[in-house]
């Protein structure tokens, strides 16, 4: 079966202390709870939760949705998004199965990144070690006024900005995340190049025979 890997890269720096981190924890729970009612997600989605501050670790490795028990995340220290991105890239590289003759590959993973602050390290520099082509979709959610949108735009065009950092706003974001995972494409990726129609078939090479 093809798995649909979903990575949540969550900022748990000190500025998230109090209501924001409580909202993130509640949000992750609500997200998992909502996905449990979606048959497609329940059968195929694999979720991984990667919190980051000064350090980054995978608190939930890529796990079948039905087995997930959301962790209680604590907020402390600084925001090192660059380091987290490198970690994410390496983790996905390791965990996501590519198609081979013996094995059916996973769907390309989806990533949701949430952060409220300026990164303590250089994002642009970290992106040289970030393999964007590993992912089918990267969404960054920036909340509050501290987030450096210009830097975040380097990661992906899909930067969503939440002006408020209260529980309701974060909750609604997670609701949207779960909806996006639900509807997330299980259909073929578009790899279309040039859309110009070819005017005619190429000539048949004289030495050619395609008998098997």
């Amino acid at each position: 079966m093809r798995r649909l890997p979903v990575y949540l890269l969550l900022d748990v720096s000190g500025s998230m202390r109090g209501e924001p981190i409580a909202a993130v924890n509640a949000g992750v729970k609500a997200l998992v709870e909502a996905l449990r009612t979606d048959p497609y997600a329940l059968e195929t989605a694999f979720l991984s939760i990667i919190p980051f501050n000064n350090t980054v670790e995978q608190s939930v490795p890529l796990t079948e949705l039905y087995k997930i028990k959301p962790p209680e995340l604590e907020a402390k220290q600084g925001t090192y998004l660059g380091k987290a991105l490198k970690f994410l890239s390496a983790t996905a590289e390791r965990e996501v199965v590519k198609s081979s003759k013996e094995k059916k590959g996973d769907w390309k993973p989806i990533v949701f990144i949430m952060t409220d602050g300026k990164s303590g390290d250089k994002i642009a520099k970290a992106l040289t070690d970030f393999n964007k082509s590993l992912f089918s979709q990267i969404v960054v959610c920036a909340y509050g006024n501290e987030a450096n949108i210009v830097d975040l735009k380097l990661i992906t065009e899909n930067v969503i900005r939440l002006d408020n950092i209260d529980g309701e706003t974060i909750k609604s974001f997670f609701k949207w995340v779960s909806a996006s995972i639900s509807t997330s494409s299980h259909s073929a990726n578009d790899n279309h190049g040039d859309e110009q129609p070819i005017s005619d078939l190429p000539p048949l090479p004289s030495s050619f025979s395609f008998v098997i």
């Binding site: 198609s99 059916k104 299980h186 279309h192 040039d194």
Partner: peptide, 26 residues
């Protein structure tokens, strides 16, 4: 036709299907 990841394939609508003779004859 399958790619490295699930769901990657090629389509009749792609011009490149007809552009490369060796690929097309195969």
């Amino acid at each position: 036709d399958e790619g490295e990841y699930g769901g990657q394939t090629r389509f009749l609508t792609m011009p490149e299907i007809f552009a490369n003779p060796t690929d097309f004859f195969s």
